[in-house]
C-alpha cells in the first residue's frame, strides 16, 4: 500500500501534468530538449531526480517498474528508487526486463531487447551535448536551431589524435531522427546501437538541468563518427564468467589482491536468466579457476 500523506507517486497532479506536457512536446520533437519546472525531490541531484520525476509523471497503478543502476537491480540507487515508488505509488516492481512496463535506468540499456509498449526512462546528468564546446545556453540553443553541429566532431577528432581511435566510450553523442544532436546519458557506447529504431519509447530526464527529451519508438538514432573512423562498440576477449554470454556488456571485477579478476555481465537480470536456463561461464563451470 502507499504511504499516507503522499500523493500517488509523490508528485502532485499539477506537476505531473506539467511534466507530461513537456514529455509530449519532447516526443513530438525527437531529441529536442524541453525545459520543465523540475521539482525538489527527496534525494540529492545526481541521484536520478530527473528520471524519477519523469517516471512519477507517467506511472499508473497497473504499471510494473524495474530500476537499474549500471545494469544491476540490486545497487543502492536502484533499490532505493524502486522502494520509493513501491511506497509512494504502490506499484508492482520487477527485476525481469520483459515483465516491466517502465524501466528507469542509470548508465545502461538492458540486454534483453525492449518491446513496443515499454518505456525506458534515463537519468541524465548533463543533457546538452554542445555544452563542452559552448558554455552559453542561448548560443547552444541557436546551434541546435540552426543544426550547427559540425564542431561536435572536434571532440572525436581529439580522441583519434590522442589515442589513435575514438576513445569516448560512454555518453557518446548521437543524432536523433537526422535532426537534433543528443546525449544518450552516460550509457556505454556499447548500448548506442540499441537506441536505433528501438520499439520502446525512450524518455530522458535531467533534474538539475531541468530538461526532458525523448526518442519515440522506431526512431533513427545515429552515433557520430568519421568516414575513416566509423563508430564501433567495445568488444571483449572474454565471455561472462558466470553465464558465458559473449554478446553482453561486461564489468571487470577484481576478486582478490593477487591480480585475480573476472569479467561478468553488467546486466544482472540477463545474466541470471541465462544461468537459470543452464548456461555456464568459466567461473561457474570450473570453480577452481575463479574466485566465485
Amino acid at each position: 500500500m502507499t504511504e499516507d500523506g503522499y500523493n500517488f507517486a509523490y508528485l502532485d497532479e499539477q506537476t505531473k501534468r506539467m511534466i507530461r506536457r513537456a514529455i509530449l512536446k519532447a516526443v513530438a520533437i525527437p531529441g529536442y530538449q524541453v525545459p520543465f519546472g523540475s521539482r525538489e525531490m527527496p534525494l540529492p541531484y545526481g541521484w536520478g531526480t530527473g528520471g524519477i520525476q519523469v517516471t512519477a509523471s507517467i506511472i499508473g497503478r497497473d504499471d510494473t517498474l524495474k530500476v537499474i543502476d549500471q545494469g544491476a537491480d540490486d545497487t543502492v540507487n536502484a533499490v532505493s528508487i524502486r522502494k520509493f515508488f513501491a511506497r509512494t505509488a504502490g506499484v508492482a516492481t520487477t527485476e525481469r526486463t520483459e515483465d516491466a512496463t517502465i524501466v528507469q535506468t542509470r548508465h545502461r540499456i538492458p540486454e534483453t531487447p525492449l518491446a513496443a509498449g515499454q518505456i525506458l526512462v534515463y537519468q541524465v546528468p548533463i543533457p546538452e551535448p554542445l555544452r563542452w564546446l559552448e558554455p552559453r545556453e542561448a548560443e547552444t540553443r541557436k546551434m541546435h536551431a540552426l543544426e550547427e553541429y559540425g564542431a561536435m566532431h572536434v571532440r572525436l577528432y581529439e580522441d583519434i589524435a590522442r589515442f589513435g581511435h575514438i576513445a569516448t566510450s560512454y555518453d557518446y553523442p548521437v543524432r536523433v531522427n537526422g535532426r537534433y544532436l543528443a546525449r544518450p546519458s552516460p550509457i556505454p557506447k556499447f548500448d548506442n546501437p540499441k537506441m536505433d529504431r528501438l520499439p520502446a519509447l525512450q524518455l530522458f530526464g535531467a533534474g538539475r538541468e531541468k530538461r526532458i527529451y525523448a526518442i519515440p519508438p522506431h526512431t533513427e538514432v545515429r552515433s557520430l563518427d568519421f568516414d575513416d573512423h566509423p563508430f564501433e562498440v567495445q568488444t571483449w576477449d572474454e565471455a561472462c564468467a558466470f553465464c558465458g554470454a559473449a554478446d553482453s556488456f561486461l564489468d571487470e571485477i577484481v576478486t582478490d589482491d593477487r591480480g585475480g579478476r573476472l569479467f561478468v555481465c553488467s546486466d544482472t537480470d540477463y545474466c541470471g536468466k541465462r544461468r537459470a536456463a543452464g548456461h555456464t561461464g568459466s567461473a561457474t563451470r570450473d570453480p577452481e579457476r575463479g574466485g566465485a
Binding site: W132, L133, E148, G150, A151, M152, H153, V154, R155, Y157, E158, I160, A161, R162, D225, F226, D227, D228, H229
Partner: peptide, 27 residues
C-alpha cells in the same frame, strides 16, 4: 582559439563545421 583542444583540432574545426567527415583529410 579553442584553448582546450589541440592545434590540429583548432585548425580542423572550421572544416568539420562545414561537413568534413574524413579524419585523415582533416589532419
Amino acid at each position: 582559439l579553442r584553448m582546450g583542444v589541440s592545434a590540429g583540432a583548432n585548425i580542423g574545426e572550421r572544416l568539420m563545421a562545414v561537413g568534413a567527415r574524413h579524419y585523415g583529410n582533416i589532419r
